[in-house]
Amino acid sequence: MPTRTHRSRARVVPALFAASLALLLGGCSVDSTSPADARADAPKSDGKPLASGRSGPAVDCGEAKCIALTFDAGPGKDTPELLDMLKKEDVHATFFLLGKNHVLKHPDVVRRLAAEGHEVANHTWTHKRLDQLDKDGIREELGRTQDAIAEITGEKPRLMRPPQGRTDDEVTEVSKELGLSQVLWSATAKDYSTTDSELIKKRIVDQAGRDGIILLHDIYDGTVPAVPGIIAELKKRGYTFVTVPELLAPAAPEPGTVYRP
């Protein structure tokens, strides 16, 4: 018969696993706003285009079954192929770009992202965990990427994604100062851990939900080949693909706010 100590541990382990899973899927425990709440609480936008080269909401996500496709840590060698796929499918995505060795290495791809109507966003300079830095360090990681992207596209991003989804009050404060909203996610394929494109597709399709935000990486070998199947299956299920600002519209992304489905 299990002792009281053993029974306590049996209860604690699943609880810790659940907490870890929640952290992995959605970042640290901070106040956040869902896309639906953002739409309900803000009757009008800030008047800015929803993405470079496009204006006006393409779809009303209060009525349509919307989902946002997002890519982290690029651009990389496969990003041009991904852009060809998205163009063919008439899908616009949100790209959270890394500065060092990515934005600097692929300026033409960054320029193309903006020109083709995708949302160009910030994923820090070197992918350091922002919650482990002081304010100056956070400002350096985000500010350098802001400046590098603006030099290429002529516009600073308004969205950022903290590495590993780790954020805190200081990250929020600096993000607000820099005019950046924080965007977490609801579906992840853990594509950093597999090159199996069918598995990546299955994980995303299984987690998909209305007002969801999909997290993928366009720098891993199995990811880009999985994208056509993800798009085809979710379109078949009635989803409309949008950028993150389109998902929030008519609300405008609020600097400092953490958005999470």
Rank of each mutant, 00 (worst) to 15 (best):
H6N: 05
R11I: 11
P14G: 13
L16C: 14
A19D: 02
G27T: 02
S32E: 12
A36D: 13
A36G: 09
D37S: 14
R39P: 08
G47T: 09
P49I: 01
L50C: 10
L50N: 07
S52R: 12
R54K: 14
V59R: 15
C61L: 12
E63C: 03
E63G: 04
A64N: 05
C66Q: 07
T70M: 03
E81Q: 14
L86S: 05
L86M: 08
L86T: 08
K87H: 13
V91G: 09
V91F: 09
H92V: 11
T94N: 08
L97I: 04
K105Q: 15
R111C: 00
R111S: 13
A114Q: 03
A115N: 06
E116S: 00
G117V: 01
V120Y: 04
W125T: 03
R129W: 14
Q132Y: 10
Q132T: 14
D136S: 10
E140M: 13
G143Q: 06
G143T: 02
R144D: 04
D147M: 00
A148M: 00
I149K: 02
A150R: 05
E151L: 04
G154T: 08
P162S: 10
T167R: 11
E170I: 02
E177Y: 00
S181Y: 05
Q182E: 14
A187T: 00
T194N: 07
S197M: 02
V205Y: 02
D206T: 12
A208C: 04
R210Y: 01
D211E: 04
I214M: 00
L215I: 10
L216A: 02
D218G: 00
I219T: 15
V224T: 09
V227R: 04
I230V: 13
I231K: 06
L247I: 10
E254V: 13
Y259A: 09
Y259Q: 06
Y259M: 08
